[in-house]
Design a protein around this nucleic acid. Structure first.
Length: 271
DNA sequence: ATGGGCACCTGGCTGC
DNA sequence: TGCAGCCAGGTGCCCA
């Protein structure tokens, strides 16, 4: 699913439709998501107004009058804005019905997504309080990445996927970031040089930023709130391009498994 | 504390 | 055509 660019694209698509809208109801047709959706949730949010649509890492934060909805899209989740009367299709698990006659509809075939309501400071929630700084925050810089990689024997790619250390980078963009930074995915994090840490930070921002501008990456089923796919796939340098020519040097792109996930890299461009 | 592996799900594709 | 096997944008948790 969605990595940071897809969640951010979703946030931007939702924002004009939800901001200032009153919640008429929350219809939960399937509560068995990553965590069971609390039965009290509809009663808690009905009647509140959506004040803003925010994002923290891959979590969407809908700030309400008295609290916050924490929405995660998991691997296969997506949110669409639909007319509130539209009959639900398969895997349309939740509707957030607004006073505009529209509803935010959550579809998630694999049900790895989640929905929580937090009444206090959302940053203090257990799911958010240990997350690394946002990639576009100034706290995420070369010094930071240098510091958190020291003494770490884990492969740098695995470290990029660890949300306590780096946030927003998922499996597609991890390979892309390492390509752009010229760093091999198997390198032990502790052996990354200062200059490489700098290049990685630049690459994280560059790749995620470019992907957001392209509306995210659609591999299979990701769609934005208007029901449209993202267009970053055609700009991927290595992901899902095993055996194909590197776009920079024509060497065949290599593919292997790391931590039970696919990794792609160019043996010539990355060291 | 760190690292590795598993689990949670459904669906699409491949190959016999 | 049918079916087994494998793979997929995430991440919390358990164990060594």
């Amino acid at each position: 699913m969605p990595e940071l660019p897809e969640v951010e694209t979703t946030r931007r698509g939702l924002e004009p439709h939800v901001t200032g809208r009153r919640i008429e109801s929350l219809n939960v047709r399937e509560r068995r998501l990553r965590w069971r959706v609390a039965p009290t949730l509809p009663g808690l949010v009905t009647g509140q107004t959506v004040e803003a649509a925010g994002r923290r890492a891959k979590y969407l934060l809908l700030r309400l009058t008295h609290g916050t909805l924490l929405w995660h899209l998991g691997m296969s989740g997506s949110l669409r804005v639909v007319p509130s009367g539209l009959p639900p299709a398969t895997h349309d698990h939740i509707d957030l019905v607004l006073d505009s006659g529209q509803a935010v509809r959550f579809n998630d075939p694999r049900r790895f997504g989640s929905l929580h309501y937090v009444s206090g400071d959302p940053e203090a929630h257990p799911l958010l309080c240990r997350l690394a700084p946002e990639p576009f925050d100034e706290a995420f810089d070369a010094d930071y990445l240098w510091r958190v990689t020291r003494g770490r024997r884990a492969a740098i790619k695995l470290l990029l996927l660890n949300s306590r250390l780096v946030t927003g980078v998922g499996n597609i963009y991890a390979s892309e970031v390492l390509f752009q930074a010229g760093v091999r995915p198997k390198r032990q994090a502790r052996n990354i040089s200062r200059a490489e840490a700098q290049r990685l930070v630049v690459a994280v921002r560059q790749v995620l930023g470019d992907a957001i501008r392209a509306g995210g990456t659609t591999l299979r089923d990701y769609i934005n709130p208007e029901g449209r796919p993202g267009y970053f796939r055609q700009r991927l340098f290595v992901y899902e391009r095993g055996g194909e020519a590197c776009r920079r040097c024509s060497t065949p792109v290599r593919h292997f498994t790391q931590g039970q996930r696919s990794t792609y890299y160019c043996p010539t461009c990355q060291h």
